[in-house]
Amino acid sequence: MSDYRRAQDAGACYFFTLVTHQRQPLLTQPRLREALRLAIVQVRQRYPFNICGWVLLPDHLHCLWQLPEEDADYGLRWSMIKRLTSQAVPSAQGVSLSRRLRRESGLWQRRFWEHRIRDEADYRRHMDYLHWNPMRHGLVERVADWPWSSYHRLVREGVYPEDWAGVADDMDAFGE
């Protein structure tokens, strides 16, 4: 096993990417969305964190979290969220011996990617990236058309204009 070191700064803001096992397009299914939502609610009750931004796509999710000042343990939170979601929606597929030995389900990839947000510009870049992601993947023509995103809340709060990012044919916001 690799000796992977993660940033662990109490009270920091982090950008995360989590992917389903073998990129199965499951996360936007109603039953799984609800299981994920309930897992997050349950974990936040015991281990609080603020969700600054979020987007849920069929096979992965991106989010920005602000941790409490005295806490840096996002790994515990993700472990619990992934476990609770997997328990609520058991995999229809068989699970490999390797995954069974690690007590893993067939829902999530083993690890997740994290990035500690360095400053306001970094925060804005990651927030824009996660909200633009459904357009990047060709799932919608406008950011506002994707239902599983914090973009709608942030428009109501005045953070984004309602027409932010225009239409897919009109822009290439992230050079992709």
Rank of each mutant, 00 (worst) to 15 (best):
Q93E: 15
D59H: 12
G94I: 00
A7N: 10
R83D: 10
R5A: 14
V143Y: 09
D71S: 07
E157K: 13
V19K: 15
P25K: 10
Q22R: 12
S150W: 14
P58K: 06
D119K: 02
R136G: 03
G175Y: 10
Y129N: 08
V43T: 08
A168L: 15
D119Q: 12
A173D: 04
W54H: 15
D145L: 02
A92Y: 05
R77E: 02
M127G: 01
A121G: 14
L32E: 02
P25F: 04
H60R: 13
R99I: 05
N133T: 04
S105L: 04
V95K: 04
V155W: 04
G138I: 01
S150K: 12
S150H: 10
V143M: 09
W65A: 01
L154A: 04
V41M: 07
G11P: 09
R111V: 08
E70I: 01
I40G: 03
Y123M: 10
C52G: 08
R103K: 12
R103Q: 12
L154M: 08
A39D: 02
P58D: 06
G138S: 00
R100I: 13
C13L: 10
E34D: 11
A173Y: 12
Q24T: 07
R37N: 03
L64M: 11
F16K: 13
R142L: 02
R44D: 03
R6N: 09
G158T: 09
D145Q: 14
R116E: 09
M1I: 05
G11D: 08
K82E: 13
L32V: 10
G166A: 05
P48F: 07
E70D: 10
L26D: 02
R125G: 00
G175S: 14
S98G: 13
W113A: 14
H21A: 10
L84W: 08
R153L: 10
W113M: 09
S149N: 06
Q42A: 14
E141P: 01
R33A: 02
L26Q: 03
Q109E: 15
R102S: 15
L27Q: 04
W54E: 15
N50V: 15
R31L: 04
R153Q: 12
L36P: 01
A39E: 01
M1V: 09
T20A: 08
P147C: 04
R103M: 07
E120D: 11
P134E: 02
T17I: 09
I51E: 15
P161L: 00
R111S: 11
R6M: 09
D71N: 13
I117M: 04
T28H: 01
I81H: 03
E141I: 04
R142G: 03
A173G: 07
Q22F: 08
A173F: 15
H62P: 14
L130W: 12
W132K: 06
A72C: 11
N133A: 11
L76A: 00
F112A: 13
V55Q: 08
H131Q: 05
A7V: 14
R77T: 00
E176P: 05
Y47D: 04
L97I: 06
A88H: 00
G175V: 06
R83G: 06
L101Q: 14
E120G: 08
R156S: 06
G138H: 00
P161D: 06
P161F: 01
P68S: 03
Q24E: 15
L26K: 02
G75V: 03
R6D: 07
R6G: 08
V89P: 00
L36T: 01
F112E: 11
L61C: 15
W78N: 05
T28E: 05
E114I: 07
R111H: 14
G106F: 04
L154S: 03
